[in-house]
Write a protein that binds this DNA or RNA. Structure first.
Lengths: 112, 112
DNA sequence: AGAATAGGTGACCAGATGGTCACATGTCAA
DNA sequence: TTGACATGTGACCATCTGGTCACCTATTCT
């Protein structure tokens, strides 16, 4: 509600930035150059994306000499979850997801 | 990963659409006209936003006569959560959030 | 049937966004 | 201290996005 989290949602809106979060989820504490090498984009682009992620609080950084290490911060994600998932109905959702996984195992890719 | 969820993140990127989800979270099954009346925007704008939310699967609809009822679907939100919150560290995050709430009760609004 | 009501379409415009580049700063190691 | 490396800044451009409007269709009620 306090649309301070606007930064978080804007940051998550781009596929490149989500990919960066995925890379950090897989291995935390990577540098800009490491992340760039995995992403088929110039260093400048990656830097811009990392800046947005950091301003949104989704990534926290620590300088180590001339390197800057990046870490994934899960807290804002958790807050998104809590905004629209009622504690009371959370169990139902989980059940639905299990059912969905079950169905897709039998009938992979059905549209709408 | 299957950037089909691109629609979900794009849909969540706009404050008006998040406000719509909030309204539906508060009271499910509202019509377009009901939602419009709460939002200081023309009906056309609201309709466009609802369409994106529906295409993203965040809102599901049911026609009833000439009315169209809108319902919040929490499943995609849950999937976002599961993408970056490790089951193993989930407890730590919850603990951090509790701590944060605790701190903000004593020191409301501190930046960064 | 005819009026009122609820929802839908396509085009249009101003402003925001993603990506690149030339150039600049800071740090390490020989 | 010089060169190589890691990161940072400001400007620039093509494209996407939010919002509005004139106009259209479908359903309900009298």
């Amino acid at each position: 509600m306090s649309d301070d989290d606007d930064l978080v949602f804007k940051a998550l809106a781009d596929p490149t930035r989500r990919a960066l979060l995925d890379r950090l989820f897989a291995r935390d504490g990577q540098t800009l150059t490491e992340l760039e090498s995995e992403l088929a984009m110039t260093r400048f682009g990656v830097m811009k994306h990392l800046r947005l992620l950091e301003e949104a609080g989704l990534v926290v950084t620590r300088r180590q000499g001339r390197e800057k290490l990046h870490f994934l911060n899960p807290v804002p994600i958790r807050l998104i979850h809590d905004r629209w998932i009622d504690k009371y109905t959370e169990h139902h959702t989980t059940t639905l997801l299990d059912l969905k996984a079950e169905l897709e195992r039998d009938d992979p890719k059905e549209k709408r």
